[in-house]
C-alpha cells in the first residue's frame, strides 16, 4: 500500500483544507477556517453525506493529542507519551501541587533525581511559568510543578518526595 496522499489546499476567503483518503476508502477532511474554528468531516466509503464536527482550537488540539497517541489518563493532569522509535519508551509527565510539608526546600535539598530518577521540568507560580528550574530553586506552598519520568519513578516521587 502506498502511503496516504494528504492533499492540502488554500481556499480563498475560507481557510486551509487538508484531505486524505484512508486505506479502507474513507475520507477525512479538516478545514482551518478564517473564523478561527476547525471543522472536521468524515465521509464513510459508500456514503455521500459526510458528518461534520466543529471544534475550537483547544478542542482540536485535544483531539490531536488523542490521535497522536499521547494517551490522556483518567487523571487529567498526566500525559503519557510512547516513542515507537525508542523501543516503545513510555514517558509520563505529571503535574503536582507542592504541599506545605516541603515548602521552603530546594530541589537539591530534596535530592529528587537521586532518590526517584524523575526531573522537575517546570513550575507554575502565580500564573508565571519557570522552565527548567535550577537545583537551587525553592518551592513554595501551592506551586504547580511538572515532573517527568517513567510511571514507576513517578510513583516513587509521590511516595518519597510529596509526603516528606
Amino acid at each position: 500500500m502506498s502511503p496516504m496522499a494528504l492533499r492540502s489546499l488554500n481556499l480563498p476567503g475560507v481557510g486551509t483544507k487538508y484531505e486524505f483518503e484512508t486505506d479502507k476508502g474513507d475520507t477525512v477532511a479538516i478545514f482551518f477556517t478564517k473564523t478561527g474554528t476547525i471543522q472536521m468531516y468524515t465521509l464513510q466509503k459508500g456514503c455521500h453525506t459526510p458528518s461534520a464536527a466543529e471544534m475550537t482550537p483547544v478542542e482540536a488540539r485535544r483531539l490531536g493529542n488523542i490521535l497522536t497517541g499521547a494517551i490522556i489518563e483518567a487523571d487529567q493532569e498526566s500525559v503519557e507519551i510512547a516513542f515507537s522509535a525508542l523501543a516503545d519508551l513510555r514517558i509520563t509527565i505529571h503535574s503536582y501541587i507542592i504541599p506545605r510539608a516541603i515548602a521552603g526546600k530546594t530541589i537539591e535539598d530534596l535530592r529528587i533525581r537521586a532518590k526517584t530518577g524523575t526531573t522537575v521540568i517546570a513550575i507554575s507560580r502565580n500564573d508565571k511559568n519557570i522552565i527548567n528550574p535550577p537545583p537551587s530553586f525553592v518551592f513554595e506552598t501551592g506551586d504547580a510543578v511538572l515532573v517527568i519520568g517513567e510511571s514507576d519513578q513517578l510513583r516513587l516521587f509521590e511516595r518519597e518526595i510529596m509526603v516528606d
Binding site: 476567503g13 475560507v14 483544507k17 484531505e19 475520507t27 477532511a29 478545514f31 477556517t33 473564523t35 474554528t37 471543522q39 468531516y41 465521509l43 459526510p50 461534520a52 466543529e54
Partner: peptide
Amino acid sequence: VTSLIENRKLM
C-alpha cells in the same frame, strides 16, 4: 463563505 461554514458544507 459564512453559509458554507455554518451549514457544514465545506467538504
